[in-house]
Amino acid sequence: MKPAPFEYARAGSIKEASELLARDDITARILAGGQSLGPMLNLRLAQPDLLVDITGIPDLVAAERDGDSLYLGACVSHANVEDGRIPDVTNGALAEVARGIAYRAVRNRGTIGGSLAHCDPAADWPCVLPALGARAVVQGANDKREVAVEELMQAPFEPGLEPGEILAGLRIPAMSPDARWGYYKYCRKTGEFAEAIAAVAWDPARGFARIVIGALDTLPIVLGDNERLFGDTPERKPFDTYRPEEADRMLTDAGVRDPLKRQVHMVALRRALEFASA
């Protein structure tokens, strides 16, 4: 199908974009790579009056090492990450995840910030970024704030952005050289919406451990402490003391009522853990 008519504006600065997005007489949406919004526009699920293209804003395509973290502008594409055009601070995790997003033709336009701000629970970055302890840099016309990505996401498709605010970038903490990570995504067909996602990061040198269970019908479950999933030894060999019955109970609590679906999620989690332990 063809999209309903819309106006298009290419913003030159965050301030300019912010002012257009803050208008309350029209429905304005941010356009980055458009790889999630484009289908919704073409199917006429979304019918905004105005698209504000933010990909020409120089600040949003930055990528730089900043002390103990990597700053990535929101409009860095999945392919940029896959191709190693950004500094690697995650022992290869970001590039490996990027490689598995949709298809190359989509990755060449889809952006990391767009994917996070779209808050699709079945997408890769909304599961991986919380696992890495990433923070979102949110900018409005006049002020700037930082928030943990799992706090930014408030519901499927609902980032906690006030009118006029833009997800400007991401701050991703650098992993220690001996840190481990694991990621497993289950799809019926390569590149389709995931049916289960598990992301694991373990960095004993920084005292950091995260597990994310995603591709649920609601936001990912972000576990910042592995006590319940891993017995009573969170500091030592956590993956060897994994307690599947706890994971099963958490999934049930999260509303995954179908035992088959729970099993698929648990297998994804186990495989991510195995990858991180290997």
Binding site: A4, P5, F6, E7, Y8, A9, R10, A11, G12, S13, E16, A17, L20, R23, D25, I26, T27, A28, A32, G33, G34, Q47, D49, L50, V52, D53, T55, G56, L60, V61, A62, A63, G73, C75, V76, S77, A79, N80, R85, I86, N108, R109, G110, T111
Partner: peptide, 23 residues
Amino acid sequence: SELGPVGSGHAAANAAEAVAKPA
């Protein structure tokens, strides 16, 4: 070597031309 979506980043801003009215 360019960062960002392919196709983007070549053109100047045109936000001032935007005259969107409510549908």
